[in-house]
Amino acid sequence: MTQIHPATTPEDIAAVRQLCWDYRTHLAQVSPVDAQLVETFYPAPKYTALMDTLTQAHARPQGIILLVKLDDAPVGCAMSHALDTQTSEIKRLYVAPDARGHGIARKLLTALMEQARADGFTRILLDTSVTLTPARALYAGMGFSERGPYQDTPEDVLEHLVFFEAQL
């Protein structure tokens, strides 16, 4: 049975942090370009600091951290935070490889979109690697449109990223 809920307990947050590290490892193994993107945006010391402040960066009411359990085992996470009063950004949507094929990513994305709408946001943004074809198909299939960068991004990595936007 799949359960999605806000990560609020110390155990939940620890599980999310582990899933985030798993996600970072996964991205670094996708391709040499993705490994370089990981090191550009999330070198280990910076990622450690990010994990230490995860609950503050995605705190309610301007954000949320979701944890997915499949048969009581943590298998996925996703989070959002405000970029401005109208815009929410999705970060680190990840489902462990052995839990894929259950529609978990779609459920996570739907839950984040519904929460952002309920919180008063009118649009939601995210970015992903060009090489993550299933993720790109999911976002397009759920009403996201490709757009240009919405944050400062080094020129040399722009061709390796895809930016998406959806109206809520």
Rank of each mutant, 00 (worst) to 15 (best):
F163C: 02
G143N: 09
V75G: 13
E159G: 00
R92T: 07
T2Y: 11
G63V: 07
I65V: 13
P6A: 15
A166P: 00
A116F: 13
A82D: 13
T153L: 08
E155V: 05
T25G: 07
F41A: 05
P74Q: 15
V157A: 08
I90F: 15
F164A: 00
G101F: 03
H160D: 12
P134E: 07
T153V: 12
G101K: 03
L132E: 00
G148F: 05
T153H: 04
T153C: 12
T85L: 03
V75H: 03
G120K: 05
D127M: 02
L27D: 08
T8H: 09
R92F: 04
D22T: 06
P32R: 13
M1L: 11
D71P: 02
A105E: 02
G63T: 00
A28M: 06
T153R: 07
L66F: 14
P134W: 10
G141Y: 14
S145Q: 04
Q56E: 14
M51T: 04
K46W: 00
S80V: 02
A137E: 13
Q29C: 07
V157T: 08
T53H: 14
P154I: 01
T87R: 11
Q3V: 15
R147S: 15
T8C: 03
I64E: 12
G120E: 05
A135Y: 03
L132V: 01
A118W: 05
Q86T: 15
Y139H: 11
I64M: 12
H26R: 07
Q29K: 08
Q3F: 10
I90G: 14
F163Y: 11
T48S: 04
A118D: 10
R123W: 05
L161Q: 04
A105V: 00
D52K: 11
A166R: 05
P74D: 15
L158P: 04
P32D: 04
R136Y: 10
L125M: 06
L126K: 01
P10C: 13
Q18W: 08
Q3A: 12
V75E: 14
D71I: 01
R117A: 13
L50I: 07
W21N: 06
A35L: 03
Q56F: 03
R24K: 03
V38L: 09
D156K: 07
V157S: 06
Q151P: 01
